[in-house]
Design a protein around this nucleic acid. Sequence first.
DNA 1: GGAGTTCGCATACC
DNA 2: ACAGGTATGCGAACTCC
Length: 798
Amino acid sequence: MKFEFMPIDYDYFDFNGRNYVKLIGRNEKGAKICVVDSYEPNFWVILKKGSKVEAIVKKIEKIEVEKASRTTKVVRTEILNKKYLGEDVKAIRVFVTNHKDAHDVASAIGDLDGIEKRREYDLPLITKYIKEKGIEPLEWHEVEGSSISESEVGGSGIEKLDVDVCVFADKIEVLKDDKKFTPKILAYDIETSEREIGKGEIFMVSLYGEGIKKVLSWKKCKSAESYVEFCKDEADMLEKFVKYVNDYAPDVLTGYFSDGFDLPYLKVRAEKNGVKLNLGIDGRGPIFSRGRIPSGKIAGIVHVDLYRFVDSVFSQYLQSETLSLNEVAKELIGEEKEDFDFKKLGNMQDSDWCDFFSYNLQDSVVTYNLAEKIWPDILEFTRIVKEPLFDVARDRMATHVENYILHNLDKFNEIAEKRPGHDEIGKRRTMGKYEGAFVFEPVPGLYENLVMFDFTSMYASVIVSYNLSKATFIEGEEFSKKQGFFPIMLNEIIEKRKIHKKEFAENPSGILKARSNAYKLLANASYGYQGFFGARYYCREAAAATARLAKENILSAIDKIEKAGYKIIYSDTDSIAFLQEDKNKNEVLKFLKKINKELPGIMELDLEDFYARGLFVAKRGATAGAKKKYALVDEKGKVKIRGFETVRRDWCRLTRDLQNRILGKILKDGNEKEALKIVKDVVKKLKERKVELEDLMIRTQLRRPLNEYLSEGPHVVAAKKMEAKGIPVSTGMLIEYFVGEGSGKKIGDRVYLADEKTKYDIDYYFKNQILPAVENIFDVFGIDVRAIIDGEKQEKLF
DNA sequence: GGAGTTCGCATACC
DNA sequence: ACAGGTATGCGAACTCC
């Protein structure tokens, strides 16, 4: 039997004491396929120079490890010339019967005479399989297979899996084929009576995908839409949910925060109701792996929690202030969730249930559309880092960088470094910080005609240009001249980013954009990776040198720009802003070219933009200019604001909107007098109590459990109030409160929740919100807002 | 017990 | 625990007399 095959999910199982890999995917006709492949688990023993290879091999081949359920043996060995951290080494590849015991066999070998190190016993089996056999996820392959029952895994029970075809692989080859692949995606969402898992019950489940649009519920309402399917009770609803998922047979089952809520909730309710949540192709329910956040795995269906991918890969590039489905969907696809007033839950009328059904369905619709939007990014990341989709959708950037390295080591004949142990991590973490980036202290003022230069992927290009990595670090002598594999890989990442960015510019598509973006994110995370205590290729010296050399380069660029007669206004890490003055744009660009000729290696300075005006303010209560706080307007009138209160989510709307309008007035119209009027208007409104409470709410994130706070700030007081009222409070939540009138000395004594009926404290909002946000802006123009507004108050009094 | 200072904390920038 | 360091600025807690 011969067919085209795309592996989507990877798993492995033991049979007769051996490991087999189970690939789940689709063929070219869209049928669901399981391919079973053999795998020979192995790890490496690196030898000391001049050691007696034959004697060591003899000893190794005799090793057996007794486990409760099996005995693992060394099957055979190979002696090869390899590289380890760039050095030539002689190594023994030790093949064992079971991967799970590779670590034990490695330990049993121990530090025999002549053995330097043991490596790769700590790589996941699937990672080794993909690396060694080249069966990469989400790429087309050609499989020649034979019947399972006649193969060596006949009788293993694998043929019982719920797939269209299940075969044993005789041969798998990669197809050089860029044929499109569209996965079958199914989105789901549940609504419950309680937020806490294990407490309430599930009212309804919605499902949305191509050709499916459903709300399953045991609650009733007259004149429900046709997509609602009524169930007898919760148990019946759960059974129907399982049936619909099984019938649809998706490649990807997706939710939003579903690892942390929907899937575990379903599991608990299914257990409670005695329903088998057999969503997997093996007839079993989801399995949750332990970890900071549990990950819900379903056999044969890739469960993707979009929140996790957005959180770990996208979030730093999003404008959204929270990663709620509503905000993220609004930003990425321009779609919003429906409104539903959860206060109604205590007393639901017939029509309220209809509204709730509609709300529930819309959540799945939004999740589905978000999944379609993000799919190219998840797909490209999966193809580039070559790990299974399930993991790629959950891994953080450091893991992506590491996986990229691991899957590209073979080009360098390199044996992989081991993961740091507990003690090693502890040691790394106690190391203090090293010196980081340079930030220029600006002189407060409103400037005209600014130019901004910035280095492209600065830290990554420093790593490449100066060859900074663990393998190229020589104790006491800095870094080797011989190019290391990490800088070479990083150079490739930067090159690919350039190529795909250009491709995208010529022929825009979601896939090309995602591809270019994935390389950019990998390049940007590579510096942090080398300084990250959990990294296999951790090298503090390389990270510190990267920061130091980046600093040297930006200081030297600043120096050149100054020597050319320009005035520097600001600089932070990889960017420099200066006054254009009497030079025209061509002269500036020519000058940029000249600087670039003198830069080392692949380092490159780029024109970021020309700006019509730029505003820099002083630090609070000081004359020194504030760093990381400025506002620019480009020549088209587009305003760019950094660091100001208006971009900070822990300031109230009133303050943020006011400051935003003022900055706009000053930058676009250059009119600070008009801006002052706006302030006066808002203060007047505030004093007349005409400001909506919503605009006065302050939102602060709770970043740890309540009992771990040493200092009880206002948001902690507010959270405690919520808890006392029976509102569940958890780490990560945005706590909302306003400051009301009262005699308490601390602000915390005057903290109120939105539904509390107290007058807002005019004085607080004036002195602690509005004034701090506008004062130093007007200071730039020699206008003392505080005095002016206080003065007007005095005039009125007299 | 009030003023001045330090510390804890959240959030932003790159 | 799940990329790094640099920076602002609020409000509580502490220090000092």
